[in-house]
Design a protein around this nucleic acid. Sequence first.
DNA 1: CGGTGGTTTGATCAAAATCAAGTGAGGTGG
DNA 2: CCACCTCACTTGATTTTGATCAAACCACCG
Lengths: 241, 241
Amino acid sequence: MPHNTLLRKILSHQPSLTDTETRAAVEALLIDVTPLNPNDVIVRAGDRPERCCIVMDGYVVSSKVTDDGKRQILSINIAEDMPDLQSLHLHVMDHDIISLGSSTVGFVAHDALRRLTRSHPRVGEALWRETLIQAAIFREWILNVGRRSGGQRFLHLMVELHRRLSAIGKTNGRSFDLPMTQTDVGDALGMTAVHINRVLQELRKAELLDFRNKVVTLGDKKEVDNATKFNTLYLHQRAWD
Amino acid sequence: MPHNTLLRKILSHQPSLTDTETRAAVEALLIDVTPLNPNDVIVRAGDRPERCCIVMDGYVVSSKVTDDGKRQILSINIAEDMPDLQSLHLHVMDHDIISLGSSTVGFVAHDALRRLTRSHPRVGEALWRETLIQAAIFREWILNVGRRSGGQRFLHLMVELHRRLSAIGKTNGRSFDLPMTQTDVGDALGMTAVHINRVLQELRKAELLDFRNKVVTLGDKKEVDNATKFNTLYLHQRAWD
DNA sequence: CGGTGGTTTGATCAAAATCAAGTGAGGTGG
DNA sequence: CCACCTCACTTGATTTTGATCAAACCACCG
């Protein structure tokens, strides 16, 4: 089961990697499955982890804090994501990784993973590709925070999440679970909780987005698409593109 | 000479990669050295390039544009950087890469580079590391745009550039060349040109930063460090860290 | 010498932060 | 079981930050 998550991820990047030998090599990895509680810290900036994790269920966020204590969420990681894969090659963490709500993650030792990527370069490339897609999502995040208004910003992030969750079967129609507070959303979008609240009220009135009791519901697809002009390119969801 | 740039980059990531065989393999790459004019487009979002580039001199920026035409600069690439290295494994570009001022870049064909990384996995890892550092800089960029005030934001970016340029010997004491307009800086920091201008005047008055005639000059090191609390961790400048 | 692109200034407006206080639901201990 | 506490959400008033609009200025260039 933990290996299925990892295999699915690798195959999503390299659909041709189906041979039994590779499969066996991946399944030989020791994966330490660990349930986490809300706000459990996986790694902190400054740490030098000797393993990295793959999200199996729930949500895990990356965040940084300015010297004067303002928090910024940098990414929201869902099942099959490997938020600290970078630690395989960059030894000191430059940001925190924390469980949002309850989650389950699998830990894999760096040395075993490194051996695997060296003996199976195509697996290495699949994981490299994973980090490249993370970077693409960071870029869109910069555009979002830098150039979009509060409402657009909020909606855009939620549409992105809906797309990504949909790809792994974790949406219910136009809704999905999101164990964040309004303060957390503010930390993700570079806004205060108070302002998030007001913007949310407008989005509700416009029937574009609702978010209550940790559930996000998007409005009518056409309306939402029209409001966000969401360009799916940066998610690189199909390996052959 | 073009190979020196690439070799320097690889060695900066994998200091142990000195053997003559690897060196010869890198030097066997065909590198197409191309001088570029200001605003020359290297690749556009949507392109499927078949080669990627390494900056040899000058500056190259990555940028995206919202559907309503607002531009956001995502990264500033200097000599030894490989801004579209991602295209080696993500085949469709999700952003533009454009020469800022005049620059010189070297183009390397994807298939040759891919052959090299497969035959020399350590070279592959060095390049993977390059993309991971780019991602780390994106993360700090998000924090900067999301959580810092105009003045802090401007100063922080300039201090970052100074550090990175300093590592490749392209600073003059506390100064460095930067072929950007105030409008460009605004596009990088998510602000308007008018506001950049006013913030710059304050920074000048505080003697923290000057920027005129395409030259940036930082103020007294202690003062600037105190104002930014710059944490150098995310630049991952030393491979052994 | 007129155009052009970049910088600067001023006046006004809008977006978002800040400060402050109230509401409401869930969870705990007496 | 209820009083109380805490945390999240909401609302209002006010201030700050930054955007917008408009115009002047300036240097460089053909």
